[in-house]
Design a protein around this nucleic acid. Structure first.
Length: 554
RNA sequence: GCGCCCAUAGCUCAGCUGGAUAGAGCAACGGACUACGAAUCCGUAGGCCAGAGGUUCGAAUCCUCUUGGGCGCACCA
């Protein structure tokens, strides 16, 4: 619809040029928007305003010229008017709007998902928590955002892979091993000190209990350095199993679990470094090997191989991103905690050092989540082991509420997660507000069915009977859905879907409260049921992207 | 000290890559259940978009500075 109007405008411009009324040295890009104010029409363009300078004419004058040359072959437009300083407002014929109802009827769950990806391979890497402790709410937010984004991208035609990067190589795992070792000794009666910055959570003791069941006192007299691997591996596997359980309960599944350790053991790191050396992006200084990342906009160069011969974290990340690029993704999306933002220029430098454009990597930052109870923040400290886990939250408020609330903000803004609100079953809780709209519609169709009233088929419905203002509003909202989806996908902003849903649910509730759907008027009832059916389809599809259930009953 | 992000109603936040009179929810106040689900709806009030300059037909949006917050600045992971 938007495209058609754009075409009409373009043709008008061409005609105006032919008749010498406009200079049109460069063809302007035509931006159409939907005005907030209804009296400003259904679509509007600022074309005349933007052209004013290059044409050397007052914008209203230009608008008049354009409008004069408009030819609406398809009978799309009801009227066109010039307003304000030179806006051109288009009023569409009602049929145009109503057509969207048939579009939804025809396309069903596919409605609103244009194929913009065209099968391009995209990878979304998210959560990637260290397997040294349970997932906390911050990870949950990352999981919700990553999963919804993946759903969104794959719905618009991208071939999406979801990957979890396992940081299983470094000091963290060693620290976990030390913590386990200490608890192991303690559990078996040896009073050994607990490592200074070890993991204090009670889950460590639980892992140790399982360890003892398996190995008994086998490692009691073994020096730590000789059994670090055994403890580390056991701990890692236990934590990963735990993480999978939590993610599963949260409805998040990964296509791929990628181990950092593997990059070291299979020689990838060495190969990557060799390649960068060949490309001339590495140099030696002070006994260390540096990446010349400043060449790509980083504010300082970074060490890759330390003086002592050890690799930095960047070294494995170089290998990891080289590996990703080698898998043929045209676009990589990394979802990171916001505290890693300083790391972005470094990794983008890596991408470019391998000869890929900077923007083939998109880093989405996810801000921290503060948990509130009764409006008061719940204190969290990782050191003291008192952080709120994702498991706790999902158990308390449910997966739907948690996921939805995680997606009610832009990912890079702080989020206050109030447990009491999340459990509340009212308008204050956006999940219920939207789910209730869906359940209401389900209830409505049950009601219609019980009265033996059927939703009419597409060729048996008279949608011109949908004349009420509230019905128009709903239809327009439905027509805007594909646009919203496309924008959300291109901007990597799944939160837009929650806002859209709240808006649509609001329109539905408003309408539903004011007007009866099922009446004595059979034709009108049919048209309304048809409309309601399409609303339900859209709500259901949007919730599916978010990974939230669309209940038939609540 | 350098860099990144943020500042919008009392609170929590949207604001669609510069558009027309800045929007929701909560809280406050006042209303609506003899009909398909009141887990809902309607109304009122609430703003110098942190401040100051600039860019232009037009700025919450872009640029500069100031103030006030958050976070990064390792041969840690």
């Amino acid at each position: 619809m938007k495209q058609t109007v754009t075409d009409i405008l373009l043709q008008a411009l061409v005609r105006a040029k032919e008749q010498g009324e406009l200079k049109l040295e460069t063809l302007p890009s035509i931006a159409l928007e939907t005005p907030k104010e209804k009296t400003h029409g259904d679509l509007a363009t600022t074309l005349a305003l933007t052209m004013a300078k290059s044409e050397g004419k007052p914008p209203r004058k230009i608008a008049e010229i354009i409008v004069k040359h408009l030819r609406d072959g398809g009978g799309l437009l009801e009227k066109t008017e010039i307003a304000g300083p030179g806006f051109i407002n288009f009023f569409l014929k009602q049929d145009q709007w109503r057509q969207t109802l048939f579009d939804i009827e025809n396309e069903g769950g596919q409605y609103g998902f244009p194929d913009i990806g065209k099968g391009e391979k995209v990878q979304v890497e998210f959560v990637s928590a260290n397997p040294t402790g349970p997932l906390h709410v911050g990870h949950g937010r990352g999981a919700a955002v990553g999963d919804a984004l993946s759903n969104l991208l794959s719905s618009v035609g991208y071939d999406v892979q979801r990957e979890f990067y396992i940081n299983d190589a470094g000091r963290q795992i060693r620290l976990l091993a030390q913590s386990l070792h200490a608890r192991y000794q303690q559990a078996l009666g040896h009073d050994v000190p607990f490592p200074e910055d070890g993991y204090h959570g009670s889950y460590v003791e639980e892992i140790v209990r399982n360890f003892i069941k398996l190995h008994n006192k086998k490692f009691l007299k073994v020096p730590f350095d000789e059994c670090a691997g055994a403890f580390g591996d056991f701990g890692k596997e236990a934590m990963l199993a735990d993480i999978r359980i939590d993610l599963d309960a949260f409805g998040v599944r990964f296509d791929s679990w990628f181990s950092e350790k593997g990059l070291l053991s299979d020689g990838s790191v060495q190969k990557s470094i060799a390649e960068l050396k060949e490309r001339g992006h590495l140099y030696e200084q002070d006994g260390a090997l540096w990446l010349k990342s400043t060449a790509f906009g980083d504010d300082k160069d970074r060490v890759v191989v330390k003086k002592d011969g050890g690799y930095t974290y960047l070294a494995t990340d170089i290998a990891y991103h080289r590996n990703k690029l080698g898998r043929g993704f045209t676009s990589l999306v990394n979802i990171w905690g916001a505290d890693h933002h300083g790391y972005i220029p470094r990794v983008q430098a890596v991408i470019q050092a391998f000869g890929h454009p900077k923007d083939s990597l998109h880093v989405l930052l996810v801000q921290l989540v503060s948990i509130l109870r009764h409006g008061q923040p719940v204190p969290m400290s990782k050191r003291a082991g008192t952080f709120v886990t994702l498991r706790d939250v999902v158990q308390e408020v449910g997966s739907d509420a948690a996921r939805y609330i995680f997606l009610t903000r832009r990912s890079d803004s702080h989020l206050d997660f109030d447990l009491d609100v999340a459990k509340e079953q009212s308008r204050e809780n956006p999940v219920y507000y939207v789910q209730y709209a869906h359940a209401r519609l389900a209830s409505l169709s049950r009601e219609a069915e019980s009265r033996n009233i059927k939703v009419p088929a597409r060729d048996a419905v008279d949608v011109t009977l949908l004349e009420l203002e509230e019905e128009q509003n709903i239809i327009k909202a439905l027509a805007k859905y594909p646009e919203m989806i496309e924008e959300a996908a291109l901007a990597y902003e799944p939160h837009r879907i929650t806002y859209y849903l709240q808006d649509l649910a609001g329109l539905l509730h408003n309408y539903y409260f004011k007007h009866r759907v099922i009446t004595e008027d059979a034709a009108r009832t049919g048209a309304k049921l048809f409309l309601m059916k399409q609303v339900k389809t859209v709500i259901q599809g949007a919730l599916k992207i978010l990974g939230v259930n669309a209940p038939e009953r609540m």
